[in-house]
Amino acid sequence: MIDDERTLISRAARGDTAAFEALVARHAPFVHNLALRTLGDPRDAEDVAQEAFLRAWRGLPAFRTDARFSTWLYRIVVNLCYSRLPALRAGLDAIDIDARVDLPDLQPPVEAGALTDELRAHLYAAIDGLPPTYRLLIAMRHGQDMSYQDIADSMDLPLGTVKTGIHRARRQLQGALEAYEAAARGAREAGCAAGRSVGVGALRAGPFDPGAMESARA
């Protein structure tokens, strides 16, 4: 925990509302995004975010300063999501831990810098299409770059369950993006074939006609 955050927590625990507002500003974007990605409903996500910070404010006097504030806060968010979506906890408990404890850490489906607007939109749609269990894990791992251990602590889950769940979520995302890229490639090839067909038709129409050739290229 950085010293600046320790100071804010210490002040907020003594009732300093300005210090707590600074903590809220620092963590609110991810708290809201985590709830939204998990629950899929903006109104529910807003309610969970507000309730999470209210509980954090009330619980700060008992917060152990040797713990990570973010892990503690995200655990509050996760517990609230469990309450609103009971199937979420059941889905996490149902993940069978892979026999290989150290699963190969699949890379994210695409590098952030390589995302076009269209591909980014498709990736987010693919994430939204994951089961809530996997959406939550992906949001914590890639939305906040949390370690596997921090995720396990926040969600009160065995480390192996977290690794297995994230591995399977990434495989599903990779499959969705590969299908999208295959469809896009097919559309491009079909477009090229159609263009070649138009060009051949223009050549067969009669004597060389520059105007017809320009029309075929357009």
Rank of each mutant, 00 (worst) to 15 (best):
M1K: 00
L8G: 00
I9T: 03
I9W: 03
S10A: 15
G15T: 09
A25E: 09
F30M: 04
A35P: 02
L36R: 06
L39T: 06
A45W: 11
A45M: 07
D47S: 09
F53Q: 03
T71I: 08
Y74S: 00
R75F: 02
V77H: 04
V77E: 05
V77T: 06
C81V: 05
C81R: 01
G91N: 07
G91H: 08
D98F: 01
V101I: 11
D102E: 15
L103G: 06
Q107K: 11
P108S: 09
E111M: 10
A112K: 14
A114N: 12
A121Q: 13
H122S: 11
A126M: 12
Y134E: 15
G143C: 09
Q144F: 10
Q144A: 14
Q149M: 09
Q149N: 05
D150A: 10
I151K: 04
D153R: 08
P158C: 03
K163E: 08
A179N: 12
A179T: 14
A182T: 14
A184C: 11
R185L: 13
R185F: 04
E189H: 07
A190C: 01
C192A: 13
A193F: 08
A193W: 04
G195I: 03
S197Y: 14
V198N: 10
G199H: 12
G199C: 12
A202G: 07
R204T: 13
P207S: 13
G211D: 14
A212Y: 08
A212G: 12
M213P: 00
S215I: 04
R217M: 15
